[in-house]
Structures are given as structure tokens and as C-alpha cells.
Amino acid sequence: MRWLALVMMVGALGACAEVKPWQRGPLTHHSMDPNDKATQLAGEFNAHVFDVREGCKPGGGFAGGGCGCN
């Protein structure tokens, strides 16, 4: 068990990929910024869809019956 844990830990460390300084463009995209307005709006929209779908157990702060009309 200890061996398995050790191998998994080492494997996880080895999985790190180096991003070179000139390859960081995609990381600067606004979708990578949790404070970005568009990202937040998309998050709220997804939360609303989730709440409507799972109306019987609202977890995102919205009350609703799952009728899809809220």
C-alpha cells in the first residue's frame, strides 16, 4: 500500500509540464480569469441552468420547483 502511494505520488510529480515563457499566451485568455466579467456571467448562467434542472434540491441559492419557468 505504501509502495502504491509512493509510486502514485512520484507519478503525479512527473506529470508536471513546463510552460515556457513564450507559450503563456493561452493562459492569459480572459476565460482563465475567475474575476473576468464574461467568465462570471457564464458561471451564473450555468448555475441557473443547474438549479432549474435540479429544482428539487436547489444548491445555488435559487428557490424553484423545477418547472423551468424561473
Binding site: L6, V10, G11, L13, G14, C16, A17, E18
Partner: peptide, 10 residues
């Protein structure tokens, strides 16, 4: 050996 392999990645 395992640790040195992991260190090579970065």
C-alpha cells in the same frame, strides 16, 4: 531513481 525521474520534468 523514481524521485530523480520526477525531477527531470521541470
Amino acid at each position: 531513481a523514481l524521485l530523480s525521474t520526477a525531477a527531470c520534468a521541470s
